[in-house]
Design a protein around this nucleic acid. Structure first.
Length: 822
RNA sequence: GGGGGAGUGGCGAAACGGCAGACGCAGCCGCCUCAAAAGCGGCCGAGGCAACUCAUGUGGGUUCGAGUCCCACCUUCCCUACCA
């Protein structure tokens, strides 16, 4: 009775060996490099098979690259600052540092359990001072260049997490993490000037050929660049102007009101020139709207407003129009004021209808097109009732009006972006302290480089009340680095997206104590050749990281491209019972349980096999059972040849039968699939594993029927190499059992050989008018003439030809012959 | 409202514009077994006795030939949104 494949002993054995031998360490040995990176994980709880899919996939790519002759950098670390640790501290009184350390230890164990080939010598966690001191160092460099600044601004405040949030972190008006409704508050906060890079963040996208189109589109939409004209309305009876931004200056003669945001600074000034009662009504309205949450303000809101009592003068038409404070104009986009054109803007139209404001049409459709009844005509057209611009098309009028405004000094062509500066302050404990000191004499003073890191002090009061660091006198009180006098430390910490915006560089010089990374190391390893991570990071992390890298590039700290990620791949998630896995649903399939029940290789194979990597997969126990069967078949097929001398130099074996040729061909078909899927960056290893299924099916028959054939031995010796990227443990065991003393993972992958892939006879498809009527067996290089002659011998073809005469023939060599009959 | 995907057997899925459904799961039949499991072998879109016909969400189009390309629509998923 054959010995069954004993994954329970084989798998741990090899994991220990790889660790001992540092099998997966990057060598820097002069071979071409490949940097394969999976997004830095947060160390939370236990890994489930969704995580496992991500690691199996990234690992397969790294292994394929390594076996293709590349010096592969495949590192792993931990994004270890953040709220879960702090919340655990608040609710259970545990220390965030030890809570995080325990989670990291468990996660390391599970990632190793999966047999992943990481270079652990480069590992770090972002919560350790030797990492976050470089956060502070980078913050100071941004500060020096005016890219980090503090200002008072209306910000997103999460009442549950008790901290501010960046715009990107507000999802549907709710906190991206805890999903509580976000409020607006005016607070003084640290920002990073990502808007300075908006144009480049946008235009570089065109060069990112290795990025998914949808990801680039989403970033474009987020940056939200729009070109238009900014010009000023004078307030009647006040030495004040209100600037508006519009992409449709051609509709300016249709302006019948001015709409401004409740937070617009001019609101207070207007109060001085209108009756007190009106001013109070405006103030009350503004206060009511401002207090609403982001969600209440933006979703399905009815357009409301109140007349301020003041009027503004349209600089183009000279018209005097009423100024309204409205809820549909947002303060922090454009100028916070909008010219109201009910005839040609749908929102203005709705507002005008509610408040009975006049509708003045000034653009006529160019053709028969017109807006549906009751809706504004928002397309370009031809102008009328627009003074000297009458008769111009919208396009010409925009240029002419912009030029006139510019000449008069009341307006200019400009670009507005939707993206805001990145708010990086957090009123929380478990993060990088912002290295700034406030001195009564010197003001805002940066902490000098040689005083870094500003250590996160242990023992902060973690009870959910207020910013923890601000309540630690021992932390707050310090001396001014400039004058030596008493000073107070900044008590905000950094958004954790700060550290994940540059971590891929730290892997290159992980133990460096004089710089976050060495430029020579960056020259060696950057860019990241293949970046792998979830699509949920499309806007947040991937935009911030690109911004940082452009900054580093401008500083000369990295050379070459100013984009860090050459190619990007979003892997799909794993569902269980049709739903996303979560503890509350009780449908989590854990890595530990799965590994001990089925084995790691079976789990990895299933996750790569069940769907293409970018698709959402559904976990099934039946599915993984199929992969367990596959591995047992592999083992049984190879076992009879254990101990026999291996095939040697890799030449093709002697093949004395069609079965032998088919078997060797199956080996090379599988090899070709793996190589093609990797080099094309399609990574559909599900099809490669299907080819391995076919190979093992053929091999099972060969071992039964032709055990002594050289082709059978050849296939058995090729199989571990083909399996290595996908099922690393069994591959290594088979490699050893078939007489090798080295690691299969450092071998060269099998190169597909055209001689092995060639076939003696092919089936040529014979079509009549595009429908298959016969299949004939011919030599692969059969000529059109010979094929036609053979086709004519087919009864099914001849009977079709009786219906008419042969008008044309399409011959695709090696594939088909299509006879067009009419 | 704007943007981007996706619709193929009972299920997951394959398919450089060229044999639709590879491979796997489930199911059915056989061999093996006292029996079961495992394993091995076979069948497995629909209709028809058959030659054949019909089948990749729906309807058009391009082509010798369309799951694949183009247009419109339906369904569905994701992202985004008073952005002026």
């Amino acid at each position: 009775m054959a010995e069954a494949y004993d994954f329970r002993n084989v798998e741990p054995k090899w994991r220990e060996r790889w660790e001992l031998d540092a099998t997966y360490r990057a060598r820097s040995d002069g071979r071409p490099k490949s940097y394969v990176l999976e997004m830095l994980p947060y160390p939370s709880g236990d890994l489930h098979v969704g995580h496992a899919k991500n690691y199996s996939f990234g690992d397969a790519i790294a292994r394929m690259m390594r076996m293709s002759g590349f010096d592969v950098l495949h590192p792993m670390g931990f994004d270890a600052f953040g709220l879960p640790a702090e919340n655990a501290a608040i609710s259970r009184g545990v220390d965030p540092a030890s809570w995080t350390a325990e989670n990291i230890a468990n996660m390391q164990r599970q990632i190793r359990l999966m047999g992943t080939g990481y270079d652990w010598s480069r590992e770090f966690a972002t919560c350790f001072p030797d990492y976050y001191r470089w956060n502070q160092w980078l913050f100071l460099r941004l500060y020096e260049r005016g890219l980090a600044y503090k200002r008072e601004a209306p910000v997103n405040w999460c009442p549950h997490d008790k901290t501010v949030l960046a715009n990107e972190q507000v999802v549907d008006g709710r906190c991206w993490r805890c999903e509580h409704l976000v409020e607006r508050r005016n607070l003084s906060q640290w920002f990073l000037k990502i808007t300075d890079y908006a144009d480049r963040l946008l235009s570089n996208l065109d060069r990112l050929d290795g990025w998914p189109e949808r990801t680039k589109t989403m970033q474009r939409n987020w940056i939200g660049r729009s070109e238009g004209v900014r010009f000023e309305f004078a307030v009647d009876g006040l030495d004040e102007t209100i600037a508006v931004f519009t992409t449709r200056v051609d509709t300016a003669f249709g302006v019948t009101f001015l709409a401004i945001a409740p937070e617009h600074p001019v609101v207070a000034r207007l109060k001085t020139i209108v009756p007190a009662a009106r001013g109070d009504a405006v103030a009350a309205f503004a206060e009511r709207i401002s207090a609403k949450t982001e969600l209440e303000r933006t979703s399905l809101m009815h357009k409301e407003g109140v007349f301020t009592g003041a009027y503004a003068i349209n600089p183009l038409s000279g018209a005097r129009v009423p100024i309204y404070v409205t809820n549909y104009v947002v303060a922090d986009y454009g100028t916070g004021a909008v010219m109201g054109v009910p005839a040609h803007d749908q929102r203005d139209s709705e507002f005008a209808k509610t408040y009975d404001l006049p509708v003045v049409t000034v653009v006529a459709p160019l053709d028969d097109a017109s807006a549906p009844a009751g809706e504004a005509f928002t397309d370009d057209g031809r102008l009328f009732d627009s003074g000297k611009y009458d008769g111009m098309t919208s396009v010409r009028a925009r240029a002419a009006m912009a030029a006139d405004l510019e000449q008069r000094g009341t307006g200019h062509v400009t670009v507005t972006t939707r993206i805001r500066d990145w708010l990086v302050s957090r009123q929380r404990y478990w993060g990088t302290p912002i290295p700034i000191v406030y001195c009564d004499a010197c003001g805002e003073v940066p902490v000098p480089d040689d005083a870094l890191p500003v250590l996160l002090p242990p023992g902060a009061p973690l009870d959910g009340e207020g910013a923890p660091l601000s309540r630690m006198e021992s932390f707050v009180n310090t001396t001014c680095p400039r004058c030596g006098g008493p000073a107070r430390r900044e008590t905000d910490t950094m958004d954790t997206f700060f550290e994940s915006s540059w971590y891929y560089l730290r892997y290159l010089s992980p133990h460096d104590t004089v710089a976050p990374w060495e430029r020579t190391d960056a020259d060696t390893w950057m860019n990241v050749d293949q970046y792998i991570g979830g699509a949920e990071h499309t806007v947040l992390h991937l935009l911030y990281a690109r911004f940082f890298y452009m900054f580093f590039h401008d500083c000369g700290w990295v050379t070459g491209s100013d984009e860090p990620f050459e190619r990007l791949f979003h892997q799909g998630m794993v569902l269980s019972n049709g739903e996303k896995m979560s503890k509350s649903r009780g449908n989590v399939v854990g890595v530990d349980e799965t590994a001990s029940t089925y084995g790691v290789d079976a789990m990895r194979l299933f996750l790569l096999y069940v769907t293409p990597p970018e698709d959402t997969a559904e976990w099934t126990d039946e599915g993984i059972s199929g992969r367990v069967r596959f591995l047992n078949r592999v083992w049984r097929a190879c076992e009879p040849l254990f101990g026999r001398p291996h095939a040697g130099n890799g030449d093709l074996p002697a093949m004395s039968s069609d079965e032998d040729r088919a078997l060797v061909r199956a080996v090379h078909i599988a090899a070709k699939s793996a190589v093609d899927e990797t080099s094309s960056r399609r990574f559909h290893y599900n099809t490669t594993i299907a080819k391995l299924d076919e190979l093992v099916n053929a091999l099972t028959a060969a071992v039964r029927d032709r055990l002594d054939s050289p082709a059978t031995a050849y296939a058995v010796h090729a199989l571990p190499i083909l399996l290595a990227p996908f099922a690393p443990h069994i591959a290594e065991e088979l490699w050893e059992r078939t007489g090798h003393g080295t690691s299969v993972h450092l071998e060269r992958f099998l190169q597909p050989d055209d001689r092995a892939l060639a076939v003696a006879r092919i089936e040529l498809v014979i079509q009549v008018n595009g429908k298959v009527r016969a299949r004939i067996s011919v030599a692969p290089d059969v000529t059109a003439e010979d094929a036609l002659a053979l086709a004519m011998e087919q009864q099914a073809v001849r009977s079709q030809l009786e219906n008419g005469t042969l008008r044309k023939q399409i011959f695709v060599p090696g594939k088909l012959l299509n006879l067009v009959v009419g």
